[in-house]
């Protein structure tokens, strides 16, 4: 594929778009893992929401 005389600008634009997309996906995935881990730790300490306590027999 011939990107012409301005290939550097085209490649840089796609590299920036990919980097930002990967950063967004990583932020969402890592944040999810962190919140799940903290919730699990709190529940293991016996601290649960009222609705969760009501579900237990």
């Amino acid at each position: 594929m011939n990107l012409g005389a301005h290939a550097d600008f085209i490649v840089a634009a796609y590299a920036v778009a990919i980097a930002l997309t990967v950063a967004l996906i990583a932020w969402v995935a890592l944040d999810y893992r962190a919140q799940r881990r903290i919730l699990l730790e709190l529940e293991q300490q016996g601290i649960t929401r009222r609705s969760q306590r009501e579900e237990k027999p």
Binding site: Y32, L42, I47
Partner: peptide, 26 residues
């Protein structure tokens, strides 16, 4: 991509608020 990330980030925010509530209870 926006829709997928937004729904995932909303899920994370709901979990973050649950964490905050439990930490206040603790």
């Amino acid at each position: 991509l926006f829709l997928t990330l937004h729904l995932a980030a909303m899920r994370n925010e709901i979990l973050r608020r649950r964490v905050r509530t439990l930490q206040l209870m603790k």
